[in-house]
Simulated scan of single mutants.
Amino acid sequence: MDDSQKTKDALLEELQDLRKALRQNSADLEQFTYVASHDLRAPLRGISNLSQWLEEDLGPQLSQGSRRQMELLRGRVQRMEGMLDGLLDYSRAGRVHHKPEPVPVDRLIHETLERLAPGPSARLEVGPGMPVLVTERPALQQVFQHLLSNALKHAGREDVRIRVEVEATPAFHHFSVADDGQGISSRYHEKIWSPFQTLVSRDKVEGAGMGLCVIKKLVESRGGRTWVESAEGAGATFHFTWPGSEERLT
C-alpha cells in the first residue's frame, strides 16, 4: 500500500470517528433537553401552587396590587411551562418517527384548525389538489398546527384570512400557508427559525417562540426545507416541502 492510500484510509477513519462523535453529541443533547424539561416542571408547579395558597391564606389582607403580582407570577410560570413544552417538541422532532399511513391532507388541515378554536370571523381557504399522502400523520399535523396557530396569533385582528395551497414536485409536495396579517420584515426572515425567537413582546402575544424552530427540525429531518416570503404590513407566506408518496384513489 502506497503512502497516498494510507493517507486516504487515515482520513476516512478520522471522518467516520467525527461522524460517530457528532451523532453521540447530538443524542446526548437531545436526552439532556428531554430530561431537563421534565425535571423543571415540578418546581414550576410548586411555585404556582405556593402563590395560590398564599393568596388564599392571606385573603382580605392582600392588596389588589399584591393580587396582581401573584397573577403575573403564575402567568410567568405558565409561560415557562410553554417554553418547556416547546423544548420537548424540539427534542422529539428529529428522533421520533411514526409509521406512514394514508393522510387526507385537506381533512387534516380543517381538523387542525378546529382544534385551535379560531374566532368566528377567521377564514380558512384550502386550495385544490390536496393529496392523500402516505406519510407520518403526527409530524405533518404538528407542522400545520404551528403554522395555523402562528397565523391566528400574529394577525393582529380577528378576521384573518388563511390560505393553504400545494404543488406536487417529483420528490416532495410543496405546501404554502399564507395569511393577510401584519407581515414580517425581511431582516427577520432567518431569525424567526431560531429557538425562543418572537418578534412581538410576549406581554402582547403569548408564545414560547419555539413553533417555527420545531417546524424547521420536523421538515429538515425528513429531507424537506422551510422558508418564508413576507414584507412588513403585507402578510406572510410560509413554505415547506414534505416527502410522502401520493395514494391514488380508485
Rank of each mutant, 00 (worst) to 15 (best):
P170G: 09
G183V: 08
S194V: 01
A178H: 10
P120D: 14
V200A: 06
E158I: 02
G207I: 08
K153L: 05
L140W: 03
S91Q: 12
G156N: 00
E101G: 04
P170V: 03
E136K: 00
R95N: 08
E125S: 14
T135V: 03
A178G: 00
L124R: 11
L116H: 06
L113E: 09
L124P: 04
P138D: 07
E206W: 08
T112M: 05
Q141V: 02
I109Y: 09
H174P: 00
P128R: 12
R95C: 12
V200E: 08
G119Y: 04
A122S: 15
L124Q: 03
P170L: 05
S186H: 13
G183H: 06
G209C: 05
V134P: 00
E190Y: 05
A122I: 07
V205T: 15
P128N: 07
A208C: 04
H98T: 00
A122C: 11
F175S: 01
H110V: 15
I162Q: 00
G181N: 07
A93G: 05
L113F: 05
D203F: 12
H189R: 11
E190T: 10
H174R: 08
S176N: 08
H98Q: 00
T112A: 12
T135M: 03
R137M: 12
S201V: 00
P128S: 14
L199K: 04
H174S: 02
S176L: 10
Q142E: 13
P100F: 11
A151T: 02
S186E: 14
A117I: 12
V103P: 07
A208K: 05
P128V: 13
R202E: 14
D180R: 01
H174G: 00
Y188V: 06
Q142S: 15
V205P: 04
V143I: 11
D159G: 07
K191M: 10
E167Q: 14
P120E: 14
L113K: 04
H146G: 02
L147C: 06
H97S: 12
V205Q: 09
G119I: 01
R137Q: 13
V105F: 06
A151L: 05
D89A: 15
V177H: 11
H110W: 14
S91N: 10
I109S: 13
A117P: 04
S201K: 08
V103S: 10
L116I: 10
P102M: 04
Q145C: 11
T169F: 05
L148Q: 06
R161G: 12
V164Y: 07
T169M: 13
R92F: 12
G94P: 07
F172P: 01
E114P: 04
A93L: 01
Q141W: 00
E111K: 13
Y188P: 00
R187A: 10
Q145T: 07
S185G: 15
Q182W: 03
G119W: 03
S201E: 14
V160W: 02
E165Q: 09
S194K: 11
V205G: 03
H98K: 00
R115G: 14
L124I: 13
S91W: 03
R157F: 12
N150C: 09
H154Y: 15
P102D: 09
N150I: 04
S121Y: 10
A117D: 11
R157W: 02
P138Y: 09
Q145M: 12
L152R: 03
G181I: 08
Q197R: 13
H97C: 09
W193M: 01
F144H: 06
L116P: 08
A139N: 02
I162V: 15
P170M: 06
S121D: 13
